Simulated assay, not measured.
Amino acid sequence: MDLSEVTALLDPKPLQLEMGYERLPSGGLHVAVRTDMHGCTGEMLEWWVRWRCDTQKYIWWHPIDHTYSSWQGNLSDDTHVGSEHVVTEYFSGQPADDLVIQFRDPSEFFDEDAYSRARESGAVSGVVVGRLGVTHNPPRLPDGRVLGGRLLHIARDTEWGMALRSHFFIGHDLETLGQTAEQIAAQATVEFAQGLLQHAYDEFTFLSRFLPSLYVAENRDVSPPRAPW
């Protein structure tokens, strides 16, 4: 799957690649991860990103790999779109990476009609998508858009919780900066893909252990909690 084909993520039917990685013609990598998050919902996922965890809470999320978290950009309480998550983390045994995750509107990735139908039908219950830059000062377009990669987290609610599809495109845009496919592949290594795949599965498994309780506690004034019996 190339970035131009991600509309397929709006359909719950199994994809050719649900868990694994592949080398793209550009030299970059596509990494796919599926995580079953019992007791969670897409609404909880979107709220978690809007909550904008500091370093302490980021370490709660993944106490092995996460080390630093701060935020910049548009920090509206109503949306995560426009905010930038500045982090330092390990990818399951790889050296620590500095990253900037720039959260974007789904319309940058999906046809608006197809996206609306998926939300209305329940095929999609939560979406967190963005641009990914390696280093805390990644290359950008004149309008501020980060270059280097993409990430898409697509949630679907089920009777047992949330099925989360996470897809990453590493080394995207670099050809526009004059890099050849060979140069991009040298940076987007198989070892990196393996580490990212394991990391993403682990971090969302960790999150599923406490997200439901945290969401209920932090939203009890607008949505009073009920006893679980």
Rank of each mutant, 00 (worst) to 15 (best):
N137Q: 10
A96D: 08
D111I: 02
L132E: 02
L132H: 01
F103N: 06
Q94G: 02
N137G: 03
G122W: 12
A114T: 09
R104I: 01
R119Y: 05
E89S: 09
F109E: 03
R117S: 13
S92H: 02
E112M: 13
F110L: 08
G93H: 05
P106Y: 06
R131I: 04
D97A: 14
V129G: 01
R117I: 07
T135I: 00
G130N: 05
E89M: 09
F103Y: 14
P106G: 06
S92T: 00
D105A: 13
S92N: 01
V127H: 02
Y115K: 09
N137K: 08
S121Y: 11
V127C: 14
V128Y: 04
T135R: 05
G122A: 12
E112I: 11
G93W: 03
A96P: 11
G130V: 04
E112V: 14
G130R: 03
G130Y: 01
A123E: 15
R131L: 15
G130I: 03
R140A: 14
F110A: 04
N137E: 11
S121G: 14
G133S: 10
I101G: 02
S125T: 15
Q94W: 00
D97F: 14
L99V: 03
E120C: 13
V129A: 14
Y90W: 06
F103S: 04
E108F: 02
P139F: 14
F110M: 07
D97Y: 15
D97C: 12
D111A: 09
R104P: 00
Q94P: 00
G126H: 03
Q102F: 01
G126C: 05
A118G: 13
V127M: 07
V129R: 02
T135N: 08
A118D: 10
H136L: 10
V100E: 05
F110N: 05
G130Q: 04
R104A: 12
A118Y: 06
P138W: 09
P95F: 05
A114H: 12
R131C: 10
G122C: 12
S116Y: 03
D113I: 07
V127E: 06
A118Q: 09
S121T: 15
E120V: 14
S107M: 04
D98E: 15
Q94C: 08
P106S: 07
G126Q: 03
P138V: 12
T135A: 03
A118E: 09
P139R: 13
T135W: 04
F109D: 05
A114R: 15
V100N: 05
R104K: 08
E89R: 13
V134P: 02
P138L: 12
R104H: 01
V124G: 11
R131H: 12
A96M: 11
F103W: 01
S92C: 00
G122I: 09
A123D: 15
D98G: 03
E89V: 04
L132F: 06
S121P: 11
G133V: 10
V134N: 03
S121I: 14
